[in-house]
């Protein structure tokens, strides 16, 4: 099923899982079913092949307009969505709004009203405030993709992480997610990636742990997400088959969350010694951009046997192609 070719021509009937996707928007992983996640993974697997062709383009989304609306700098996520749209032949417009122009007075509502006049099919939004994608979904007819909102969710990152783990299940000696132990480590409190993965991985059947200093674990995390919470890396990594490190924003020192990056790395950084506490074949993931020497040691980050960080980037492109495809109605019958 994963090898289904994405042929030139319309091709949409070649993609698996036609019936299980019915959502208009992708706002978060919370509430997605296993089947829906499966549809995106299968679609992404089919589409990966396009990225290895000589001519990396299919006409599937010809005539569709995708707007990338980015209120935060994020070169990698924006380019990933941009390339995804372009490889599917959509018209892609980048709309970057920096904080300064917002402070000059244009409200999100006014920005949205302007977008509405362009009649886009999909709006991809990255925004520093949680809930901004819901705001767009409320005021626009287009399909909305959440490309990261505040500390809330970042569903395409979670989907690409799940796809990357799926690619590595065999080497972890597994055939499915059920029972897989995933340790998400670091600044969980401020991390939309951690939240999306907690929902998504739990839906897939994995056992998720949050590992980090008590000041950087969200209140009531165990109850909300059904995760195990660990405050020391030793117990948090014990037996973990996937170690997902999160970026530490250096401004956290000002907020009084941590005394120093030195102490942080000493207790919660991932180095060889700590990685040895995890399962023998454990893979290391990071959503990027990395702070080498803050949350992860360079030799771990660069270890081709363990780190799958660049695979995540490649899968990100395929997952975003799949999401755009599904939200544009691809594979929907009737």
């Amino acid at each position: 099923m994963r090898s289904t070719a994405f042929t030139e021509g319309s091709g949409s009937e070649m993609i698996a899982g036609n019936s299980a996707w019915s959502k208009k928007h992708l706002l978060g992983m919370e509430g997605l079913t296993r089947e829906e996640i499966g549809v995106i993974l299968e679609t992404a697997s089919s589409l990966r092949e396009v990225n290895h062709r000589d001519i990396k383009k299919v006409p599937t989304l010809r005539g569709k307009t995708v707007i990338n609306l980015f209120f935060e700098n994020s070169t990698r996520t924006r380019t990933s969505f941009e390339l995804a749209g372009k490889r599917m032949s959509a018209d892609v417009i980048n709309f970057s709004v920096n904080a300064s122009s917002v402070s000059k007075g244009e409200s999100l509502y006014d920005t949205v009203a302007n977008l509405k006049a362009m009649n886009p099919d999909v709006v991809v939004i990255r925004h520093p405030e949680s809930g901004a994608p819901q705001f767009l979904a409320h005021h626009l007819d287009a399909a909305i993709v959440n490309a990261g909102d505040g500390r809330h969710e970042h569903p395409t990152q979670s989907l690409l992480d799940i796809l990357t783990i799926d690619d590595n299940l065999l080497r972890l000696g597994r055939t499915e997610f059920s029972g897989l132990t995933v340790a998400i480590c670091g600044d969980v409190l401020h991390s939309r990636v951690a939240r999306s993965n907690a929902w998504g991985l739990a839906t897939m059947g994995a056992r998720v742990r949050f590992v980090g200093p008590p000041t950087l674990i969200p209140p009531h995390a165990a109850e909300v997400f059904g995760v195990e919470v660990h405050h020391d890396m030793e117990s948090g990594l014990a037996g973990a088959e996937v170690v997902m490190m999160l970026r530490l924003q250096t401004e956290r020192m000002q907020g009084g969350f941590l005394p120093s990056t030195r102490e942080y790395f000493h207790y919660w950084g991932l180095d060889r010694r700590r990685l040895a506490m995890a399962a023998p074949e454990a893979i290391v993931m990071h959503p990027g951009p990395m702070n080498r020497g803050v949350e992860i040691a360079s030799d771990v980050a660069d270890d081709p046997e363990r780190a799958v960080i660049l695979d995540q980037v490649a899968n990100g492109l395929a997952v975003r192609m799949a999401v755009l495809y599904r939200l544009c109605g691809g594979g929907r019958k009737g």
Binding site: S130, G150, E153, P219, H220, V224
Partner: peptide
């Protein structure tokens, strides 16, 4: 600050 703020990713 409670279950909902954690779910919504809003500071509590």
């Amino acid at each position: 600050e409670g279950l909902i703020s954690t779910r919504l990713g809003l500071p509590g």
